[in-house]
């Protein structure tokens, strides 16, 4: 598979995403500079974490105007797989490709720690390989990770099973203490209605090798690869 990894000024998890795709998963990864107007022909796109444009104005607010985002919009509308991680999730929300918004952590402080995630819907290209009842141990590192959407939006998302992950305890209990940021309903990650665009605050690319303390994050990438392999002929030429 061929992954495109967007690179904004001060993306800083771009290399980590490339590392995992290339050296852990053995697939190919191409860095796409934000000034490009074409993505090439990738099988999937990752919008990596970082502090695009220094998080000035609002996290992800400036990046959505980069030329590459126009191409990304077209790609997503055509059904291409897009995963936004951390700042990438914030960018996708700002760009309107995902519902909701990410606001300052309730603690008003940056939080970097391992958290547990309960997978809420396994019916998506990003979760299809996650075993039922397995909580995922994946770290967060963000200052603005508190997910917010108004009640009708949340209700609609729940109905359409767009909530993919919630913060939980190790045993899978979705409790307030388990959330590092105070997100509505402990939401850690969501997808769009067509289920081809997803974003999450935790960093699966930091939890893909045993030496770093967890391999649970690999399940997300392996889900995408598995889904693409099954669907590949169908979306060869959009």
């Amino acid at each position: 598979m061929n992954f495109a990894i967007l690179q904004f000024p001060a993306s800083n998890c771009d290399q980590d995403a490339v590392h995992v795709v290339r050296h852990v998963l053995g697939h190919s990864a191409q860095m796409i500079w934000h000034k490009e107007s074409s993505l090439g022909e990738p099988d999937a796109v990752i919008v990596p974490g970082g502090f695009s444009y220094g998080d000035y104005l609002r996290t992800g607010a400036i990046a959505q105007f980069s030329p590459v985002m126009q191409a990304l919009r077209g790609y997503a509308e055509a059904g291409g797989l897009v995963l936004g991680i951390c700042n990438g999730f914030q960018i996708l929300c700002e760009a309107g490709l995902l519902p909701g918004a990410l606001i300052r952590n309730r603690s008003l402080q940056f939080r970097c720690e391992q958290v547990f995630l309960k997978t809420i819907s396994r019916d998506s290209p990003f979760t299809c390989k996650v075993p039922a009842d397995k909580t995922l141990k994946i770290p967060v590192a963000h200052g603005d990770g508190c997910y917010y959407a108004d009640a009708p939006t949340i209700a609609r998302m729940e109905e359409k099973q767009q909530i993919l992950w919630r913060y939980s305890t190790e045993q899978g209990e979705v409790s307030g203490m388990a959330s590092p940021n105070g997100s509505v309903g402990n939401i850690a990650g969501v997808c769009n209605e067509s289920r081809n665009v997803a974003g999450l605050m935790p960093h699966p690319e930091r939890a893909s090798e045993a030496i770093l303390g967890s391999e649970d994050g690999r399940l997300l990438f392996e889900s995408m690869i598995d889904w693409l392999q099954r669907r590949k002929p169908a979306c060869a030429t959009p």
Binding site: Q15, C112, A141, E205
Partner: peptide
Amino acid sequence: VFRQYDHMVRNGSV
């Protein structure tokens, strides 16, 4: 203190 620092970025913190 250290939970306020990103101590994992760059995928090298063993």
